[in-house]
Structures are given as structure tokens and as C-alpha cells.
């Protein structure tokens, strides 16, 4: 596998790989998001207790899952960046961070909007909400740490270390609803065949999760392309690329 991956340590090959992957991710995003939103927001049946307010689940849950998914990918990139010292991995960390921060913010905001009518409060300092808020701060911390250094090599290393340390927050977020008494409910999608969520709501939700994952992938690839170009702007291949187009 190393042999297969090794060429992508070179910036121009990685750039080409991004270009190859981008259309697939983009198409999956557009198709799944349109179908998923129309299905979820317009055609899925209303909940027996929450009526139509529950429909925020089709945005809230995918964004919450992706906020953690994006963080784990960022942490994996950070480990690769620290141990194998691949500059592309460092760029990947910094490409994912703002995307993850946005997704986390979406999860927090949609959660608050749902919490007001359902719980009766915008925000409660329970374990789930607080740990998700810390996740947002971790993303912002990685970003600002990276931009605080003049020397981009040191910046990449510092940001990577923070990203790796923050991984500890992920199991805390996930298990917070089981370990402690929280206002936030437990997971609806747990065991694949005995979901606490009806199939007529589960499938549009799944589709929306796929759409969100592809969306995060698309934006990350676009950002990674930019980061590579910016970092390599004095290299001949970038100049060639710029002159051509």
C-alpha cells in the first residue's frame, strides 16, 4: 500500500488526485442532497410527538456525525504529518479544519433551534452539548494555531499536535449520553436492524448523511487544492499550470 500511496507525497500528484476525485464527490453531493432534502423535508411522515419540528434531524444529525468524522480524518492526517512528515498531510489538516468548524457550528445552531420548542431552552450545559462546543473550539484552535506561526513548518507541527490531542474529545462526545444524565437524547441510529427511528425516516436520514459526507469531501478537496497551489506557488509545475489556464 505504501508503494501505491507514495507518489501522492509529491504535491503535483496529490493535486492531480484531487482533480480526479472532485467530480465524483461533487456529483454524489448534488444528487444525494437534493433527493435527501426533498424526501426528508417534504415526503417523510411527521413524528408522532414532535410533528414537523423533528425534520431538523435531516440537517442536525448529518452535521453532528460529520463534525466528528471530519475531526477523525483531520487527526489521521495530523498523525501522518507528524510521523512521516509529509507536507501534503499537513496541508490536509489545515484544509479540513475550517470545514469541520462550519459543520460543527451547523450542528450546534440547528440543535439550539430544535431545543427551544422541544426542550424549552436554547442551550443547556449538559455533557453532550458542552463537549460538542469544545469540539468547535478545538477546530478553531487548530486553525488559529496554524495561522499564528510565521514559519509554516512549525505551524503545521503545532496544529497537528493539537489536532491529535483533541481526539480524546470524540469518545467523550459519543458516549456522553450514556455515561451521564443528559438532556440530549441517546443515539437513534444504533443497531442496524433495531433502530429507534422508523424506516420511513431512517432512509432519508441515511441519504442525507451520505450527502453531507460527500459535501464535506468536496469542500475539503477544493480547499486542499488551494492550499497545495499556495504552498507550491514558486514551483515550475504550478507556474506551468497558471500560464496554461
Amino acid at each position: 500500500m505504501w508503494k501505491w500511496l507514495h507518489p501522492y507525497a509529491k504535491a503535483d500528484r496529490a493535486y492531480q488526485l484531487c482533480n480526479t476525485l472532485l467530480p465524483y464527490f461533487a456529483v454524489i453531493t448534488v444528487v444525494c442532497m437534493i433527493v435527501g432534502w426533498v424526501w426528508g423535508l417534504a415526503y417523510a411522515p411527521a413524528d408522532y410527538q414532535q410533528k414537523d419540528s423533528y425534520r431538523i434531524i435531516f440537517i442536525h444529525v448529518p452535521s453532528a456525525i460529520l463534525s466528528m468524522g471530519a475531526y477523525s480524518s483531520m487527526a489521521i492526517a495530523a498523525i501522518v504529518a507528524l510521523v512521516w512528515q509529509l507536507r501534503n498531510a499537513e496541508l490536509a489538516v489545515i484544509a479540513i479544519a475550517p470545514v469541520g468548524a462550519c459543520v460543527t457550528a451547523i450542528a450546534l445552531i440547528t440543535g439550539a433551534a430544535w431545543g427551544k420548542p422541544m426542550w424549552g431552552a436554547w442551550w443547556v450545559w449538559d455533557a453532550r452539548l458542552t463537549s460538542e462546543l469544545i469540539l468547535l473550539f478545538l477546530y478553531l484552535g487548530v486553525l488559529s494555531l496554524y495561522h499564528a506561526f510565521e514559519d509554516k513548518k512549525a505551524a503545521g507541527r503545532a496544529a497537528s499536535i493539537l489536532a491529535i490531542v483533541g481526539v480524546i474529545n470524540l469518545p467523550i462526545i459519543h458516549f456522553s449520553v450514556e455515561w451521564w444524565n443528559t438532556l440530549h437524547q441517546g443515539a437513534s441510529i444504533t443497531k442496524f436492524n433495531t433502530n429507534a427511528i422508523d424506516p420511513s425516516m431512517f432512509w432519508p436520514l441515511m441519504l442525507n448523511i451520505v450527502a453531507f459526507a460527500a459535501f464535506v469531501g468536496t469542500v475539503t478537496l477544493m480547499r486542499l487544492k488551494n492550499e497545495i497551489l499556495q504552498r507550491e506557488k514558486h514551483r515550475p509545475w504550478v507556474r506551468q499550470l497558471l500560464n496554461r489556464g
Binding site: P45, A46, D47, Y48, Q49, Q50, Y54, I57, M118, W119, G120, A121, V124, L183, Q185, G186, A187, S188, A196, I197, D198, S200, M201
Partner: peptide
């Protein structure tokens, strides 16, 4: 001085709730 409703993780359409839990919608 504050009462918050805790929602459970179950999501289902009204007809299913009626059939499964006997909750009349």
C-alpha cells in the same frame, strides 16, 4: 423555575406510534 422536556430517541410516524404504543394521535 424552569421545566425542560427531555425527548427520547424514538422517531416514528403517528400511525406507527398508534400501532406500536397504542398512543392515540
Amino acid at each position: 423555575f424552569e421545566v425542560l422536556a427531555k425527548h427520547d430517541e424514538e422517531y416514528m410516524p403517528a400511525e406507527v406510534a398508534e400501532a406500536v404504543k397504542g398512543i392515540k394521535h
